[in-house]
């Protein structure tokens, strides 16, 4: 079934506690070359029919208005996946 993927990331200048904790764990397990980890969200919007351009535009708006908070997050990608 077609779906629209919305990806949301914490803003680059904000502390990402999850990412920091994962980075620390990776360093402990020997992955010294990974300099940082950031964790965001992948949200799938599923459809039981073809996805139209209007759906994509609506998904972008949903992404900006509801799935992310512009003060703390950025929508980094909105894409159709069949």
């Amino acid at each position: 079934m077609p779906k629209i993927i919305v990806e949301v990331m914490p803003k680059a200048d904000l502390l990402d506690p999850q990412g920091k904790a994962v980075a620390n764990a990776l360093h402990r397990s020997g992955n010294k070359d990974i300099s940082a980890v950031r964790i965001g969200k992948r949200i799938e919007l599923h459809f039981d029919r073809e996805v139209t351009d209007a759906d994509l535009a609506a998904a972008r708006k949903i992404g900006e208005d509801f799935l992310s908070n512009a003060v703390i997050e950025d929508v980094v990608n909105v894409v159709v996946e069949n």
Partner: peptide
């Protein structure tokens, strides 16, 4: 804040 009745945002405590 999420309703936009007040501005800004609230994030995880600095010390986590």
């Amino acid at each position: 804040v999420e309703s936009h009745l007040l501005p800004g945002g609230l994030i995880r405590n600095e010390h986590q």
